[in-house]
Design a protein around this nucleic acid. Sequence first.
DNA 1: GGTTGTGAATCCATTCACAGCC
DNA 2: GGCTGTGAATGGATTCACAACC
Lengths: 247, 247
Amino acid sequence: MSQQRTGPTDGPDFPDLPEATVARLPEYLRALHHLAEQGHDTVSSEGLAAAAGVNSAKLRKDLSHLGRTGTRGVGYDVSLLIDQIEQVLGLTHRRAVALVGVGNLGHALAGYAGFGSRGFRIVALFDADPGRVGEHINGLVVRHIEDLPEVVEQESISIAVIATPAHAAQHVTDRLVAAGVTSVLNFAPCVLNVPEGVDVRKVDLAIELQILSFHEHRKSALTALPPVQKPGRVGVANRLGGEAVGS
Amino acid sequence: MSQQRTGPTDGPDFPDLPEATVARLPEYLRALHHLAEQGHDTVSSEGLAAAAGVNSAKLRKDLSHLGRTGTRGVGYDVSLLIDQIEQVLGLTHRRAVALVGVGNLGHALAGYAGFGSRGFRIVALFDADPGRVGEHINGLVVRHIEDLPEVVEQESISIAVIATPAHAAQHVTDRLVAAGVTSVLNFAPCVLNVPEGVDVRKVDLAIELQILSFHEHRKSALTALPPVQKPGRVGVANRLGGEAVGS
DNA sequence: GGTTGTGAATCCATTCACAGCC
DNA sequence: GGCTGTGAATGGATTCACAACC
C-alpha cells in the first residue's frame, strides 16, 4: 500500500526535508563545489561544516535526512554528496527562469553569471515599459509583458524573478501565475499574494540593513553603558579569516 | 545594582527581542508606512498582519515584546507604532553605509533609491580596480579600497555592503572590520569569517533560486505520481490578490 | 462588541552525547 | 582511533484560546 519508495540504488527518494535543512543544502552544495575544485575528494563533517559556516552536528543531522551519505571513520565523498544534494534540490537539469523588470536591479541580475553556473538559465526578460522592449541585454531581447503566457509556455518556465517597482509587483505576479509560473523570487519591497501551490521567496535589501541596524543599536547601547563582566561568555570566538585584522 | 532600566516614559528600553521577531519588525514597519500613506491612523492586528503577510497571533506576540503598543477594542495607532518600531530598530537617525564593489550589482545597489527612504545613506563607494576609481555614480565618487580606514572614520560608518566577487570578499571584510565596521551585508556567494561582535547577513541569489527549485521538484514529483487524497489537508488557502488570476 | 496581550500547548530546530561502524 | 548517524534533551518559535480591557 505504501507507495513504493524507489529502490535503494535509484537515487534518493523524496524525503520530507525540514524547511530549515532545505535552506542550508544550497550552502553545503556551494562549499562542496569549492572543495572539489581544490582537489579534495572526501571531507569530514567538521571540515564541511566549517566551510559552510555551521556547526558539525547540524550538518550531520541535515545530511542524515538524505539517507546514507557518509562513511564512518572517513567522511563524505565530495562528488557523491554533490550529486545527492543536486538530486534532492532538483538541479539535475538547468531550470529556465524569467526575469520581469529590467531597471537598475533587473539589468544587474540579467548579467549575473552566477545563475548559469548554479543550475539556472535566464531565458526571458520582460518589462512593461514599451521604451525598454526590444533592448538587448546579455544576448536576450526584452519583451513586453503581454507576451508572458506565450513565452512561459514555449520555454517551460516555472520560476520567475520580479525586479519591478513595488506598485507593479502584485499585478505582474498575478499574470505570471496565470501563465503557469509556480515559484517567484521577489525583489520588490511588498508582500505578494499568491494562490495555494505557488511559492514565493522575498529578498529586501532595506530589510536586511534594518536588521543589522537593530544589532548595531543594541551593540552601541551595551558598550555605551557598562563594562559589565559576564564571566564564562567568552569561549568559542568566531575563527578569524586569512590575513591579520590589524593590517 | 541593576543598571537602571530607563524610565517608563523614556521610550522603549532595550527589550531582548527574539531574533525571529527582529527579522519581522522591518516588514511591519514597511506595511505601516504604506497604511499611513493611505490615510489610516489605526489598524487592527488582523489588518496589519494581512498587510505584512503573517498571521495575527504572531504579530501580536511580536509587538507585545515592545511593551504596551495597542489599545484593546481599538487596535494600534499607526504613527505611534511606526515610531516605536523605528526606535527599537535604531532607525532614529539615518545610518551611514559603505558599499564595496561597484560592478554589475554594486552599480545597481548604489542607485537603489529604497535605501534612502528607509533609514540609510550610502556615503561611500569603494573598488579595488584602479580603472574604476574616480568614476561618479549617483553623486558619489568611487574611491580606492586603500582609503577605507580614513573614510570609515570620517563618516562614522558602521555598516558595509559587499558586492565584490567571492574571491575578494573575505579580504575586503577583514579590511572593513579592521577599519571599524561592525555589520556587513554580504552579496558575495561565500561565507565570511568575522571576529566576535561583528554581524554578517548574507544574500545569495542562486541559493534563493535553489530553494525554490527544491519546491518545484517536490511539486512535480507529487503531481506526477498519485492523486492521493490526503483528507483534511486543504483549509487555509492563501488569500488571492487583487485581480483575477484567470486573466 | 471588538481587540489586545498572554499563559499554555504544540511544533520545529538545535545541540548534546554516544552507540555503531569503518 | 576517528567519524558518522541518531536518539534524547534542550531551547525557540508558533499557534491556540481566552481573560482582561476599552
